[in-house]
Amino acid sequence: MTTAPSGTAPAAATATAVPVSGLPYLGSGIGYRTEIKDAIDSPANRIDWLEVITEHYLFAPPDVRDVLHRLRRRFRIVPHGLELSIGAPREPSPRYVDALAQLVDEIDAPWFSDHLCFTRAAGVALGTLTPLPRTREIAREVGRRAQRVQAAVGRPLILENVTYYIDLLSPLSEAQFIAEVMEHCECGLLLDLTNLDINARNHGYSATEFLDTIPVERVVQVHLAGGTGGEDDRMDLDTHSEPVPPAVWGLLGELVGRAPVRATLLERDQNFPEDFGELQAELDRARLILDSGWDMRAGTRAEVR
């Protein structure tokens, strides 16, 4: 992967992204996975939108890209990346950013997302979502870099909180670090409520105080999933393999009471149930909670569709 020197803008056409407050309401969606593609294709199932893994399509041949074009006829699609590596000390690859801008434009995505972390160092792919040292200096640089990427792609970038299993001593808490990043960009947040729940339990902090600290008005989308662990003093793990747990549903209810969240996304990567009805029930529950938040406000969902 080619990298640009630190401090330079990605080589893509600069455009102005839509402000977070102007983004559309998408509803209750699911991550597109080949294991459930037949259920997703079925018009009998109630799915509002799809999230796809950016790197599966970024440099893909036309026949693979055609899958997106077919899905786009029925669903709004949002690309969710793993390799932007926004927290790396160098700017993201101009080739990557240019291809990302083309993909986002091709499917008319309302926004694109990636993780608040780094996945590459000294040109080496680390193969994991590595958390960042939580300092104000790093937060400022990450925020500014995210702003440059958002401008290059021309659509809103929303950044996701990640799970971490070792917490090094840092000047800022996780929530303070996220808030500081947001001070230096106009990007949105993808709040993974499962990651929040896991981190809060593994590292002994309050998920509610986390929500008190971050700018919840910048939360555009949430991720919902189920993990494993938590027994015999073991850490909880973010496996995307189980039903969404009660604590995460509770956090979703609390969040939508605070902010006009645009979309929920059910993440399941393994242990898919034989009956898609189990996932459909979670999709319907998420939609009901999401809509309840909008119903509490004077505005209607029609205003942001």
Rank of each mutant, 00 (worst) to 15 (best):
V244T: 11
I138M: 10
V153Y: 01
D66V: 02
S173M: 11
L103F: 01
D275T: 02
S28L: 01
A139G: 04
V142S: 08
I166G: 02
L157R: 00
R148L: 15
S173C: 12
G127S: 08
A225M: 03
E137Q: 13
W49D: 12
L237C: 14
P171Y: 07
I289H: 01
P260D: 03
Q176C: 01
C187I: 05
P171D: 08
L169Y: 07
T300A: 15
N202V: 13
T8Y: 07
V248I: 04
E174L: 02
L26E: 04
V219C: 06
R155K: 14
L251P: 08
C185Q: 00
P260H: 02
R72T: 04
L129M: 14
A151R: 10
S170E: 15
H80A: 08
A122V: 14
P92H: 08
A263L: 09
V304A: 10
M1A: 12
F112A: 03
A44P: 05
R305H: 06
A302K: 06
A259I: 01
P19Q: 02
D284M: 08
V97S: 08
I47G: 02
L224G: 09
F210E: 08
V181N: 03
R90F: 07
L26T: 05
A17M: 04
S21N: 06
P92S: 01
G7I: 03
D167W: 03
E278R: 15
E35N: 08
Q176P: 03
T239R: 10
V261L: 03
G127Y: 01
E254V: 04
H223V: 12
N195V: 12
H240C: 13
L265V: 15
T3H: 11
Y96T: 10
N45V: 08
A125Y: 12
C187A: 15
M1Q: 04
E209T: 14
L26Y: 02
A122C: 13
R134V: 09
T208S: 11
W49V: 14
T2Y: 10
Y165Q: 06
A39C: 08
D48M: 04
G253Q: 13
L189P: 01
D105P: 00
R134K: 14
E303H: 02
T54Q: 06
A263W: 05
I36D: 00
E303S: 09
A12Y: 10
M235E: 11
R74Y: 00
V248N: 02
H203A: 13
Q150P: 05
A13E: 15
F75Y: 15
